[in-house]
């Protein structure tokens, strides 16, 4: 943690108020029944996909949303079954999340799926270690994920194996680094006006 405004160190909280403890984002697996249509989706997938227990690491139901944590080796298989058997015809893209403190699974890729036929939504999540950030591409399953995967590569450095043309999409081609990772600084500049300096947002005193 860098020095903040007025020389504050650490979290910058000097009030001692608010119980500012960070909570872990990692939820355990949810127990059945999941509620809503989620049991039905899980049952259907188990029936259609014999390797269910091997491929799906965890099933999490939180805030009315079902998340299937999939092993990356099985992602494309699961995707095909979800598309063809369970009628999740649309994938609403993929977005990366970087959790530097989850050792061994720092980078997550999140795929929200939509079924037009059944009007349902679920979410797939794949996590990979930072040192080996490879995930098989699902472009052959949902062609519309092409640009989304390029964006996630651009922003997080996750390499989607089998993607037809994995290049940067938002940043210039010769850009270094992957801007939306947590270890990439926001990169603002300090602003000086009449002797007073305001540090860039990433270095200001902050509450955590």
């Amino acid at each position: 943690m860098t020095d903040g405004m007025f020389g504050a160190k650490g979290t910058g909280d000097t009030s001692g108020y608010g119980g500012l403890v960070r909570q872990a984002v990692n939820f355990g697996s949810s127990e059945r029944p999941y509620g809503s249509y989620f049991d039905e989706v899980a049952d259907d997938l188990e029936r259609a996909y014999p390797e269910f227990s091997e491929a799906i690491e965890r099933v999490v139901v939180d805030r009315g949303e079902l998340t299937l944590h999939v092993k990356r080796e099985k992602l494309v298989e699961v995707a095909f079954i979800l598309r063809d058997k369970l009628k999740f015809e649309m994938c609403m893209g993929v977005n990366g999340v970087h959790y530097p403190e989850q050792t061994g699974r720092e980078l997550h890729a999140v795929y929200p799926l939509l079924s037009l036929t059944k009007n349902q939504r679920i979410r797939l999540e794949v996590s990979v270690p930072d040192g080996d950030a490879h995930i098989p591409s699902v472009v052959e399953v949902w062609a519309g994920n092409n640009w989304h995967e390029r964006e996630t590569f651009d922003m997080f450095g996750i390499i989607f194996d089998g993607h037809p043309g994995l290049t940067r999409i938002l940043m210039p081609d010769d850009w270094e680094g992957h801007p939306q990772r947590k270890d990439y600084s926001l990169g603002g500049i300090a602003v000086e006006y009449k002797g007073a300096t305001t540090p860039p947002p990433s270095e200001r005193r902050s509450y955590k």
Binding site: M171, P179, Y184, S185, L186, G188, I189, V191, P200, P201
Partner: peptide, 8 residues
């Protein structure tokens, strides 16, 4: 937008 992407 005081950040990596925008020319100040």
């Amino acid at each position: 937008f005081n950040n990596y992407a925008i020319v100040q």
